[in-house]
């Protein structure tokens, strides 16, 4: 691509794949073995109804807590990505503020049951109806659709790891101070992702499908921000006093 920097060697790509995959597995919140043991148990009807009967603000707070838990694992993932901690602190913050929730949505496909259209949440597998009390059915449907479509690609753990790093290291985020540094890191990550896909004999279209997912992720995250501001307009005190501080810092 006419890039002046020296080409990345195969060995360097293998090394990058190894580091990012290891970082992913060390910080993935739910190991595959744990997921298998859970035997995909879903909520019983009365449990579903108890979520549906929760006051809107209580369900919002519960979801904010769960999102924040997942985001903390993503922060740990970022810290272990080769080169991320070499970026200036401003850019580390910019990338995580913009990309942590996107990586949470990517990781969601690891805990998603496509047959039953259900995601692991609060101890069991929950369908979209569990989230009715939030008052965001359109966004919830889109999030479930995204998880289902990402699941259909059947990405391996190292492919997921590389795609997560690729999403996080987006050089087009606003407020970046050292854009070129991030661009170099993202290009290397993309080469590593291509390398893994080739090594795993994936058909050609997968990389393009993954690129299209990036735009969907952006839309999901901006819709989340819109829903939050609409919610906060009605319940400002709840957000201020009951929402996790990190969540307010990132999305407030």
């Amino acid at each position: 691509n006419g890039d002046a920097s020296p080409p990345v060697s195969m060995a360097e790509l293998d090394h990058l794949v190894q580091i990012i995959s290891k970082s992913h597995l060390e910080t993935c919140q739910y190991l595959r073995e744990e997921l298998q043991q859970m035997s995909w148990q879903s909520f019983l009807q009365d449990e579903v109804e108890s979520y549906q009967n929760k006051p809107r603000e209580a369900m919002w707070q519960l979801c904010a807590v769960k999102i924040t838990e997942a985001i903390q694992y993503v922060v740990e993932f970022a810290k272990r990505i080769d080169g991320f901690m070499d970026l200036c602190q401003n850019d580390q913050i910019v990338l995580l503020k913009a990309g942590s929730l996107e990586v949470v949505f990517v990781r969601m496909c690891r805990v998603f049951d496509s047959q039953n259209n259900a995601v692991y949440f609060d101890g069991k597998f929950a369908g979209p109806d569990v989230f009715r009390a939030l008052g965001c059915d359109d966004l919830i449907t889109s999030v479930f659709d995204f998880a289902k479509s990402l699941c259909s690609l059947h990405l391996t753990e190292d492919e997921l790891a590389l795609f997560s790093a690729f999403v996080l290291l987006s050089a087009d985020r606003s407020w970046l101070q050292e854009k070129l540094q991030v661009e170099k890191l993202q290009q290397k990550t993309q080469l590593a992702l291509q390398h893994v896909l080739q090594k795993n004999h994936r058909e050609d279209g997968v990389l393009n499908k993954l690129r299209c997912k990036v735009a969907v992720l952006r839309s999901l995250c901006s819709r989340h921000t819109e829903k939050l501001s609409a919610f906060r307009a009605v319940y400002p005190d709840i957000v201020r006093t009951h929402f996790p501080p990190l969540y307010k810092e990132l999305f407030g």
Binding site: V75, E76, K79, I93, K97, P245, L246, L250
Partner: peptide, 17 residues
């Protein structure tokens, strides 16, 4: 930006457990 993101900044400072 660091001022407005003290928690995130602190998480980044913590050693990778």
């Amino acid at each position: 930006l660091k001022e407005k993101h003290k928690i995130l900044h602190q998480l980044l400072q913590n050693s990778t457990s």
